[in-house]
Design a protein around this nucleic acid. Structure first.
Lengths: 209, 209
DNA sequence: CGTATGCTCAAACGATCGTTTGAACCGGCC
DNA sequence: GGCCGGTTCAAACGATCGTTTGAGCATACG
């Protein structure tokens, strides 16, 4: 009972990236083999090593493609509110969460959040270093703005709370939890609900006395 | 650079279970091979299939061994406070979190939380059904007590909040986050700190207006 | 036209995986 | 001693993994 063909349009590289995102989300990085992946993409087995060099490089490229856009969008949204006197915690959280939400309008974009959560679970040092080096500055900018809005918290306390918010966020956005979308609610509306709950929850967790 | 020998005492079954817990936490269920595992345990390769039947059954046994004790302890702690008029949210959260904390006094017990978090990330249906069927009743009892203490929340709202708390909890207890134990803080003290932050955070997230 | 370049393909490579086999070993019991 | 159920052992099985190879094909340029 193998996966069906996922994509039949676009260049070979794009077809591979699309199929990789789906299969990595479903079966994990180790669990999805290059044979399943290339079959689903409708390309030859050797195409992955030809275009990406190795499976590991393909994994990095799957992340790079989405995270470049996602983080640029997050930083742009943050820049619109950062430092302003009337800015609230909700605004900053919105800047962080909304771009991830918009990703799910794209085909398979919503699956990427699940891939990201898998990367957290894998304790693979290479992957974690890659994510930290390439996208750590985003987290640092958001942390700085949280620090400005929560001056009553010392650094360790702030880091603890952000860490816990990150956990809840990763969990919820990747759809790991028990909350399942009802059949009478559209995917779009469901993710909107998720975002609203998430933001209210995070505000309470960050700013409690 | 393979793993060292993990355990040299106890029965073959116990040595396998101990090594499995360590390696599953480090490399995942797929990532840890039976050869690494049996070498670390100091037993023969065939011993896993002889004693457990298959690798999959071994995975289940790793869960069963810890979760039986963990959940019994959780339910006992819950029973001590459930239904009482003076019981607070903190008490119930304490009943849920403290037993997980005590697990880490055991050798490798703290690693089990990481194994559990991996199981969440794996979307493997067999494993998820196993966990749900065997231990779902624990979550149901805690949810009922939360419902009693938070009568102002309707069911969907309560479920959302518990789901988000679970995410933060899994994230923090398994040590996935950026918060790392400082070298001048004992493992015991660090986990105690984690629990305190977790409980205050969860209370705020559950009971906010 | 000839050739160079970029890409695709079927086939094979060596490595490693989970599992099985059958002999060897071991304690206790008749 | 002789046998026996439980356990351990080295060795092998077939399957699947990521990667490499070299021929084949298409398009572009001299």
């Amino acid at each position: 009972m193998d996966a069906l063909l996922v994509n039949s349009s676009g260049s070979t590289k794009e077809r591979i990236l699309g199929a990789a995102e789906v299969l990595f989300a479903q079966r994990g990085f180790d669990g999805a083999s290059l044979r399943q992946l290339t079959t689903a993409a409708g390309v030859n087995l050797a195409a992955v090593n030809y275009h990406f060099g190795s499976k590991e490089k393909l994994v990095e490229e799957v992340f790079r493609r989405r995270l470049d856009a996602l983080n640029a969008s997050r930083l742009a949204a943050l820049a619109r509110v950062a430092g302003a006197p009337e800015t609230t915690l909700e605004d900053v959280l919105e800047a962080y969460i909304r771009p991830a939400l918009d990703l799910s309008h794209d085909d398979n974009g919503s699956l990427f959040m699940r891939v990201l959560a898998r990367a957290f679970a894998e304790h693979d040092d290479t992957l974690r270093r890659f994510l930290s080096e390439n996208y750590g500055h985003v987290m640092r900018q958001f942390t700085a703005e949280f620090a400005r809005l929560l001056p009553q918290l010392d650094k360790p306390e702030l880091y603890w709370r952000i860490d816990l918010v990150t956990g809840a966020l990763t969990h919820a956005m990747s759809g790991f939890g028990m909350i399942q979308r009802k059949s009478d609610v559209s995917e779009r509306a469901h993710r909107e609900q998720t975002a609203q709950h998430l933001i209210r929850f995070a505000v309470a967790g960050l700013s409690h006395p």
